[in-house]
Amino acid sequence: MTERALEAEHLRKAFGGVRAVDDVGFSLGAGEVLALIGPNGAGKTTLFNMLGGQIRPDAGRVLLFGRDITGLPPRRVWRLGVGRTYQVTATFRSMTVRQNVQSALLSHHGRAWSPWPRADRLYRDEAESLLAMVGMTDQAERAAGVLAYGDLKRLDLAIALAHGPRVLLMDEPTAGMAPGERTHLMDLTARVSRARGVAVLFTEHDMDVVFGHADRVLVLDGGRLVASGAPAEVRADARVRALYLGESSGEPEP
């Protein structure tokens, strides 16, 4: 068994009487790629937000390399080595693509508060190499607000990788991308994960991405964990098929 990077124990969260996440626990090993699937409203985003510090759980614990990080604010969680990408991409629209990455680098190097010098002169090269990694070099000077959807997703990933995270949380990383782009992005993610031992947890609706790229799969429904295991096991699980996949899926596409 590899080192445990991220563990969730008995996490619960309710909103106005509705149990969004109900007693969910799992562990994620260093260098492992874990997929989290389930219908909208199953509690995936709530779970993500509890892991990233955006929401404080009602009960349960989150451990990062054995350290209790439950309820820490997002910026502390980030400092401890958790990177995150968003379902609805959140980039900084008053900046260029490169400045977006530079913002994360400024924060990482402890220069976020400094009044000097001009921000876009700092960590240029580092930003460029992160952009190169996600294949965005030629768009570095463009406005972040005008990027195509797939490019926004890649920029989001570059920002999330800026501080060399040990755990990466990705909320629907490939939604809306073309098949080629999807494979490319997930291959890239897998490469980074293996090369740097980064643990990756991602949510996804596309079953081809899930079954093609995940080491293990978690299935969430109605806030509860209903199955977990290797992709093949989950795909064959009768309960998962009834609750989520439906009878006609699971077969290869025509």
Partner: peptide
């Protein structure tokens, strides 16, 4: 100030508060 690291960080918080916090900005 607007174009200093500080100013850029503040603009990051304005543009996307959630994203800003998840790159470690206070």
């Amino acid at each position: 100030l607007v174009f200093s690291p500080f100013g850029q960080s503040v603009r990051a918080c304005r543009d996307s508060p959630g994203r800003a916090e998840s790159i470690g900005l206070d």
